[in-house]
Design a binder for these strands. Structure first.
Lengths: 167, 167
DNA sequence: GAAATCTTGACTATTTTGCTTGGGAATGTA
DNA sequence: TACATTCCCAAGCAAAATAGTCAAGATTTC
Protein backbone atom coordinates (compact mmCIF):
# COMPACT_ATOMS: atom_id res chain seq x y z
CA UNK A 1 0.00 0.00 0.00
CA UNK A 2 0.98 3.53 -0.55
CA UNK A 3 0.32 5.39 2.64
CA UNK A 4 2.18 8.64 2.50
CA UNK A 5 1.51 12.07 3.83
CA UNK A 6 -0.50 12.62 0.71
CA UNK A 7 -3.16 10.22 1.94
CA UNK A 8 -2.73 11.36 5.52
CA UNK A 9 -3.10 15.01 4.58
CA UNK A 10 -6.17 14.22 2.54
CA UNK A 11 -7.88 12.40 5.38
CA UNK A 12 -6.86 15.03 7.89
CA UNK A 13 -8.16 17.81 5.67
CA UNK A 14 -11.41 16.01 4.99
CA UNK A 15 -11.87 15.45 8.68
CA UNK A 16 -11.20 19.12 9.37
CA UNK A 17 -13.75 19.98 6.72
CA UNK A 18 -16.30 17.67 8.31
CA UNK A 19 -15.70 19.13 11.72
CA UNK A 20 -16.15 22.72 10.59
CA UNK A 21 -18.81 22.22 8.05
CA UNK A 22 -22.33 23.31 8.71
CA UNK A 23 -22.52 27.00 7.90
CA UNK A 24 -21.51 27.13 4.30
CA UNK A 25 -18.35 26.20 2.49
CA UNK A 26 -14.93 26.19 4.13
CA UNK A 27 -12.00 27.89 2.43
CA UNK A 28 -8.93 25.78 1.87
CA UNK A 29 -6.82 28.51 3.41
CA UNK A 30 -8.53 27.89 6.75
CA UNK A 31 -7.89 24.19 6.61
CA UNK A 32 -4.32 24.79 5.52
CA UNK A 33 -3.71 27.02 8.50
CA UNK A 34 -5.41 24.82 11.06
CA UNK A 35 -3.75 21.61 9.92
CA UNK A 36 -0.38 23.02 8.97
CA UNK A 37 -0.57 21.95 5.36
CA UNK A 38 0.68 23.98 2.41
CA UNK A 39 -2.24 25.66 0.63
CA UNK A 40 -1.06 24.79 -2.85
CA UNK A 41 -0.54 21.23 -1.85
CA UNK A 42 -4.03 21.08 -0.45
CA UNK A 43 -5.37 22.48 -3.68
CA UNK A 44 -3.83 19.63 -5.57
CA UNK A 45 -5.30 17.10 -3.20
CA UNK A 46 -8.74 18.67 -3.30
CA UNK A 47 -8.65 18.72 -7.05
CA UNK A 48 -8.53 14.95 -6.95
CA UNK A 49 -11.08 14.71 -4.20
CA UNK A 50 -13.44 16.81 -6.26
CA UNK A 51 -13.03 14.59 -9.30
CA UNK A 52 -14.16 11.69 -7.16
CA UNK A 53 -17.10 13.79 -5.89
CA UNK A 54 -15.88 13.51 -2.34
CA UNK A 55 -16.10 17.28 -2.04
CA UNK A 56 -18.00 20.03 -3.81
CA UNK A 57 -16.65 23.50 -4.41
CA UNK A 58 -17.98 27.04 -4.54
CA UNK A 59 -15.88 29.75 -6.11
CA UNK A 60 -15.62 33.38 -5.29
CA UNK A 61 -15.64 35.27 -2.03
CA UNK A 62 -17.22 33.30 0.75
CA UNK A 63 -16.67 30.19 -1.31
CA UNK A 64 -14.80 27.07 -0.41
CA UNK A 65 -15.39 23.37 -0.13
CA UNK A 66 -18.13 21.27 1.34
CA UNK A 67 -18.49 17.53 1.66
CA UNK A 68 -19.73 15.69 -1.39
CA UNK A 69 -22.06 13.62 0.78
CA UNK A 70 -22.78 13.08 4.42
CA UNK A 71 -19.81 12.50 6.70
CA UNK A 72 -21.28 9.12 7.51
CA UNK A 73 -21.07 8.08 3.89
CA UNK A 74 -17.50 9.05 3.14
CA UNK A 75 -14.97 6.40 4.03
CA UNK A 76 -11.32 6.84 4.78
CA UNK A 77 -10.34 4.29 2.16
CA UNK A 78 -12.05 6.32 -0.52
CA UNK A 79 -10.20 9.44 0.45
CA UNK A 80 -6.84 7.73 0.34
CA UNK A 81 -7.60 6.03 -2.94
CA UNK A 82 -8.65 9.34 -4.44
CA UNK A 83 -5.32 11.01 -3.83
CA UNK A 84 -2.91 8.11 -3.77
CA UNK A 85 -3.71 6.50 -7.07
CA UNK A 86 -3.43 2.93 -5.86
CA UNK A 87 -3.84 1.25 -2.55
CA UNK A 88 -2.33 -2.02 -3.65
CA UNK A 89 0.64 -3.68 -2.02
CA UNK A 90 1.63 -5.84 -4.95
CA UNK A 91 4.42 -4.69 -7.19
CA UNK A 92 2.40 -5.52 -10.28
CA UNK A 93 -0.75 -3.85 -8.92
CA UNK A 94 -2.68 -7.03 -9.41
CA UNK A 95 -1.46 -7.69 -12.94
CA UNK A 96 0.30 -10.93 -12.09
CA UNK A 97 3.48 -9.99 -13.91
CA UNK A 98 5.55 -9.28 -10.82
CA UNK A 99 8.43 -11.53 -11.81
CA UNK A 100 9.48 -12.55 -15.31
CA UNK A 101 6.03 -11.65 -16.51
CA UNK A 102 4.52 -14.17 -14.14
CA UNK A 103 3.13 -14.14 -10.67
CA UNK A 104 5.79 -13.82 -8.00
CA UNK A 105 6.06 -16.13 -5.04
CA UNK A 106 4.39 -13.78 -2.64
CA UNK A 107 1.79 -12.28 -4.91
CA UNK A 108 -1.19 -13.66 -3.00
CA UNK A 109 0.23 -12.49 0.29
CA UNK A 110 0.30 -8.91 -0.85
CA UNK A 111 -3.06 -8.96 -2.50
CA UNK A 112 -4.58 -10.50 0.61
CA UNK A 113 -2.97 -7.77 2.65
CA UNK A 114 -4.34 -5.15 0.31
CA UNK A 115 -7.87 -6.40 0.77
CA UNK A 116 -7.31 -6.51 4.48
CA UNK A 117 -6.27 -2.89 4.64
CA UNK A 118 -8.85 -1.84 2.14
CA UNK A 119 -11.65 -3.48 4.10
CA UNK A 120 -10.47 -1.93 7.31
CA UNK A 121 -10.25 1.60 5.96
CA UNK A 122 -13.51 1.33 4.11
CA UNK A 123 -15.42 0.63 7.26
CA UNK A 124 -14.32 3.88 8.88
CA UNK A 125 -16.32 6.93 7.89
CA UNK A 126 -15.51 10.55 8.57
CA UNK A 127 -18.44 10.55 10.95
CA UNK A 128 -16.88 7.67 12.86
CA UNK A 129 -13.74 9.72 13.24
CA UNK A 130 -15.66 12.78 14.33
CA UNK A 131 -17.28 10.70 17.03
CA UNK A 132 -13.97 9.75 18.55
CA UNK A 133 -13.10 11.44 21.77
CA UNK A 134 -9.46 11.98 20.89
CA UNK A 135 -10.39 13.62 17.61
CA UNK A 136 -12.74 16.03 19.32
CA UNK A 137 -10.07 16.91 21.84
CA UNK A 138 -7.49 17.67 19.20
CA UNK A 139 -10.01 19.62 17.16
CA UNK A 140 -10.97 21.73 20.14
CA UNK A 141 -7.34 22.52 20.83
CA UNK A 142 -6.75 23.46 17.23
CA UNK A 143 -9.77 25.74 17.10
CA UNK A 144 -8.66 27.38 20.30
CA UNK A 145 -5.12 28.17 19.23
CA UNK A 146 -6.59 29.28 15.94
CA UNK A 147 -8.31 32.16 17.69
CA UNK A 148 -5.21 33.16 19.60
CA UNK A 149 -2.94 33.10 16.60
CA UNK A 150 -5.18 34.80 14.08
CA UNK A 151 -6.40 37.75 16.17
CA UNK A 152 -9.86 36.28 16.43
CA UNK A 153 -11.33 37.09 13.06
CA UNK A 154 -12.87 33.72 12.38
CA UNK A 155 -15.05 33.21 15.42
CA UNK A 156 -18.34 31.44 15.89
CA UNK A 157 -16.90 27.97 16.10
CA UNK A 158 -16.43 27.69 19.80
CA UNK A 159 -19.96 26.35 20.20
CA UNK A 160 -18.73 23.21 18.50
CA UNK A 161 -17.49 22.00 21.84
CA UNK A 162 -20.92 22.16 23.44
CA UNK A 163 -22.31 19.91 20.75
CA UNK A 164 -19.97 17.15 21.69
CA UNK A 165 -22.26 15.23 23.97
CA UNK A 166 -24.48 14.38 21.07
CA UNK A 167 -22.35 11.49 19.90
CA UNK B 1 3.42 1.57 6.98
CA UNK B 2 6.36 1.30 4.72
CA UNK B 3 5.73 -1.53 2.33
CA UNK B 4 8.14 -1.27 -0.53
CA UNK B 5 9.96 -3.74 -2.68
CA UNK B 6 12.50 -3.88 0.09
CA UNK B 7 10.04 -5.63 2.35
CA UNK B 8 8.55 -7.60 -0.49
CA UNK B 9 11.93 -8.80 -1.66
CA UNK B 10 12.87 -9.78 1.85
CA UNK B 11 9.75 -11.87 2.34
CA UNK B 12 10.04 -13.41 -1.10
CA UNK B 13 13.67 -14.30 -0.52
CA UNK B 14 12.95 -15.72 2.92
CA UNK B 15 10.17 -17.80 1.47
CA UNK B 16 12.45 -19.05 -1.29
CA UNK B 17 14.99 -19.92 1.34
CA UNK B 18 12.37 -21.82 3.35
CA UNK B 19 11.22 -23.72 0.29
CA UNK B 20 14.70 -24.82 -0.70
CA UNK B 21 16.17 -25.34 2.69
CA UNK B 22 16.82 -28.79 3.97
CA UNK B 23 20.10 -29.84 2.43
CA UNK B 24 22.47 -27.30 3.86
CA UNK B 25 22.74 -23.58 3.35
CA UNK B 26 21.46 -21.81 0.24
CA UNK B 27 23.67 -19.35 -1.60
CA UNK B 28 22.25 -15.92 -2.14
CA UNK B 29 23.17 -16.15 -5.81
CA UNK B 30 20.64 -18.96 -6.22
CA UNK B 31 17.88 -16.98 -4.58
CA UNK B 32 18.80 -13.93 -6.61
CA UNK B 33 18.51 -15.87 -9.83
CA UNK B 34 15.30 -17.67 -8.98
CA UNK B 35 13.54 -14.59 -7.71
CA UNK B 36 14.97 -12.05 -10.10
CA UNK B 37 16.50 -9.89 -7.39
CA UNK B 38 19.86 -8.16 -7.67
CA UNK B 39 22.47 -10.09 -5.71
CA UNK B 40 24.04 -7.05 -4.10
CA UNK B 41 20.65 -5.81 -3.08
CA UNK B 42 19.85 -9.15 -1.50
CA UNK B 43 23.12 -9.01 0.35
CA UNK B 44 22.08 -5.79 1.98
CA UNK B 45 18.72 -7.21 2.96
CA UNK B 46 20.21 -10.39 4.37
CA UNK B 47 22.68 -8.39 6.36
CA UNK B 48 19.75 -6.93 8.24
CA UNK B 49 17.95 -10.22 8.48
CA UNK B 50 21.05 -11.74 10.00
CA UNK B 51 21.31 -9.01 12.60
CA UNK B 52 17.80 -9.90 13.69
CA UNK B 53 18.74 -13.59 13.77
CA UNK B 54 16.13 -14.41 11.16
CA UNK B 55 18.81 -16.14 9.13
CA UNK B 56 22.18 -17.71 9.88
CA UNK B 57 25.11 -17.65 7.51
CA UNK B 58 27.95 -19.96 6.57
CA UNK B 59 30.87 -18.58 4.61
CA UNK B 60 33.05 -20.21 2.05
CA UNK B 61 32.31 -22.63 -0.75
CA UNK B 62 29.14 -24.57 -0.16
CA UNK B 63 28.12 -21.89 2.28
CA UNK B 64 25.09 -19.70 2.22
CA UNK B 65 22.13 -18.88 4.42
CA UNK B 66 19.79 -20.95 6.47
CA UNK B 67 16.75 -19.99 8.50
CA UNK B 68 17.43 -18.65 11.95
CA UNK B 69 14.59 -20.78 13.35
CA UNK B 70 11.86 -23.02 12.06
CA UNK B 71 9.74 -21.71 9.23
CA UNK B 72 6.72 -21.97 11.49
CA UNK B 73 8.30 -19.53 13.93
CA UNK B 74 9.28 -16.78 11.53
CA UNK B 75 6.54 -14.32 10.81
CA UNK B 76 6.14 -12.08 7.81
CA UNK B 77 5.85 -9.01 9.99
CA UNK B 78 9.24 -9.69 11.52
CA UNK B 79 10.87 -9.97 8.13
CA UNK B 80 9.42 -6.69 6.94
CA UNK B 81 10.32 -4.93 10.16
CA UNK B 82 13.87 -6.20 9.90
CA UNK B 83 14.54 -4.59 6.55
CA UNK B 84 12.14 -1.68 6.52
CA UNK B 85 13.09 0.01 9.74
CA UNK B 86 9.57 0.93 10.77
CA UNK B 87 6.17 -0.44 10.10
CA UNK B 88 4.31 2.56 11.40
CA UNK B 89 1.83 4.59 9.42
CA UNK B 90 1.96 7.72 11.53
CA UNK B 91 4.11 10.57 10.39
CA UNK B 92 5.59 10.97 13.82
CA UNK B 93 6.13 7.22 14.28
CA UNK B 94 4.10 7.29 17.43
CA UNK B 95 5.81 10.30 18.94
CA UNK B 96 2.70 12.49 19.04
CA UNK B 97 4.41 15.46 17.47
CA UNK B 98 2.84 15.16 14.05
CA UNK B 99 1.56 18.72 13.92
CA UNK B 100 2.95 21.73 15.71
CA UNK B 101 4.63 19.41 18.15
CA UNK B 102 1.29 17.99 19.13
CA UNK B 103 -0.82 15.08 18.09
CA UNK B 104 -2.45 15.56 14.71
CA UNK B 105 -6.14 15.10 14.07
CA UNK B 106 -5.79 11.67 12.59
CA UNK B 107 -3.02 10.33 14.74
CA UNK B 108 -5.08 7.57 16.29
CA UNK B 109 -6.41 6.46 12.96
CA UNK B 110 -2.94 5.75 11.66
CA UNK B 111 -1.71 4.09 14.78
CA UNK B 112 -4.79 1.88 14.84
CA UNK B 113 -4.14 0.99 11.24
CA UNK B 114 -0.56 0.19 12.04
CA UNK B 115 -1.55 -2.30 14.73
CA UNK B 116 -4.09 -3.77 12.38
CA UNK B 117 -1.50 -4.44 9.70
CA UNK B 118 1.09 -5.51 12.21
CA UNK B 119 -1.25 -8.03 13.80
CA UNK B 120 -2.23 -9.40 10.45
CA UNK B 121 1.31 -9.89 9.22
CA UNK B 122 2.52 -11.28 12.49
CA UNK B 123 0.07 -14.13 12.33
CA UNK B 124 1.43 -15.39 9.03
CA UNK B 125 4.52 -17.56 9.25
CA UNK B 126 6.75 -18.67 6.45
CA UNK B 127 5.40 -22.16 7.02
CA UNK B 128 1.87 -20.87 6.45
CA UNK B 129 2.97 -19.45 3.14
CA UNK B 130 4.71 -22.67 2.16
CA UNK B 131 1.49 -24.53 2.81
CA UNK B 132 -0.42 -22.42 0.33
CA UNK B 133 -1.27 -24.09 -2.91
CA UNK B 134 -0.53 -21.06 -5.05
CA UNK B 135 2.88 -20.67 -3.48
CA UNK B 136 3.78 -24.27 -4.16
CA UNK B 137 2.66 -23.90 -7.74
CA UNK B 138 4.76 -20.84 -8.35
CA UNK B 139 7.71 -22.42 -6.61
CA UNK B 140 7.43 -25.52 -8.77
CA UNK B 141 7.34 -23.41 -11.90
CA UNK B 142 10.38 -21.44 -10.76
CA UNK B 143 12.38 -24.56 -9.96
CA UNK B 144 11.45 -26.02 -13.30
CA UNK B 145 12.37 -23.02 -15.43
CA UNK B 146 15.51 -22.83 -13.35
CA UNK B 147 16.69 -25.95 -15.07
CA UNK B 148 15.72 -24.79 -18.53
CA UNK B 149 17.59 -21.56 -18.32
CA UNK B 150 16.27 -18.07 -18.13
CA UNK B 151 13.97 -17.73 -21.13
CA UNK B 152 10.98 -19.17 -19.32
CA UNK B 153 8.32 -19.03 -21.98
CA UNK B 154 5.71 -21.12 -20.22
CA UNK B 155 2.46 -19.31 -19.91
CA UNK B 156 0.31 -20.18 -16.97
CA UNK B 157 -1.21 -16.98 -15.79
CA UNK B 158 -4.51 -16.88 -17.60
CA UNK B 159 -6.16 -19.16 -15.08
CA UNK B 160 -6.13 -16.77 -12.18
CA UNK B 161 -9.61 -16.83 -10.75
CA UNK B 162 -8.59 -15.44 -7.40
CA UNK B 163 -9.35 -11.82 -8.02
CA UNK B 164 -8.95 -10.45 -4.57
CA UNK B 165 -7.92 -6.90 -4.03
CA UNK B 166 -10.44 -4.71 -5.71
CA UNK B 167 -8.17 -1.73 -5.47
C1' DG C 1 46.43 -20.59 -2.53
C1' DA C 2 42.42 -20.22 -5.38
C1' DA C 3 37.66 -20.14 -5.63
C1' DA C 4 33.29 -19.59 -3.46
C1' DT C 5 30.72 -17.30 -0.46
C1' DC C 6 29.42 -13.98 2.96
C1' DT C 7 30.30 -8.85 4.78
C1' DT C 8 30.57 -4.10 4.53
C1' DG C 9 30.49 0.58 3.12
C1' DA C 10 30.34 3.98 -0.15
C1' DC C 11 28.47 5.55 -4.20
C1' DT C 12 24.81 6.48 -7.90
C1' DA C 13 20.67 6.63 -10.76
C1' DT C 14 15.88 6.96 -10.57
C1' DT C 15 11.56 7.85 -8.64
C1' DT C 16 8.56 9.86 -5.43
C1' DT C 17 7.26 13.35 -2.43
C1' DG C 18 6.05 17.64 -0.90
C1' DC C 19 5.92 21.95 -2.22
C1' DT C 20 6.36 26.43 -5.06
C1' DT C 21 5.38 29.39 -8.79
C1' DG C 22 2.61 31.50 -11.86
C1' DG C 23 -0.86 31.95 -14.10
C1' DG C 24 -6.03 31.50 -14.81
C1' DA C 25 -11.43 31.49 -14.12
C1' DA C 26 -15.53 32.25 -11.51
C1' DT C 27 -18.14 34.96 -8.28
C1' DG C 28 -19.67 38.08 -4.68
C1' DT C 29 -19.39 43.08 -3.19
C1' DA C 30 -19.05 47.90 -3.71
C1' DT D 1 -17.39 48.30 -13.65
C1' DA D 2 -13.54 47.28 -10.67
C1' DC D 3 -11.74 44.32 -7.47
C1' DA D 4 -10.87 41.09 -3.92
C1' DT D 5 -11.57 36.41 -2.89
C1' DT D 6 -11.77 32.03 -3.79
C1' DC D 7 -11.18 27.79 -6.60
C1' DC D 8 -8.53 25.68 -10.61
C1' DC D 9 -4.56 23.96 -13.18
C1' DA D 10 -0.08 22.89 -14.97
C1' DA D 11 4.69 23.08 -14.88
C1' DG D 12 8.74 22.86 -12.39
C1' DC D 13 11.90 21.70 -8.54
C1' DA D 14 14.63 20.40 -4.28
C1' DA D 15 14.98 16.97 -0.99
C1' DA D 16 14.30 12.48 0.36
C1' DA D 17 13.69 7.69 -0.36
C1' DT D 18 14.32 3.77 -3.16
C1' DA D 19 16.64 0.37 -5.76
C1' DG D 20 20.62 -0.90 -7.19
C1' DT D 21 25.94 -0.90 -8.28
C1' DC D 22 30.68 -1.22 -7.18
C1' DA D 23 34.74 -2.21 -4.76
C1' DA D 24 37.19 -4.12 -1.22
C1' DG D 25 37.63 -7.46 2.27
C1' DA D 26 36.86 -11.69 5.45
C1' DT D 27 36.16 -16.74 5.89
C1' DT D 28 36.08 -21.16 4.62
C1' DT D 29 36.59 -25.32 1.59
C1' DC D 30 39.06 -27.73 -1.55
Amino acid sequence: MKLTTKGRYAVTAMLDLSLHYGKGPIALADIAQRQGISLSYLEQLFSRLRKKSLVASVRGPGGGYSLGRGAGEIYVGEVISAVDENIDTTRCNGAYNCHNNERCLTHELWSDLSSQIYNYLNKISLQDLMDRKTVREVAARQDHSDQEGASGLELALADESSDLAGA
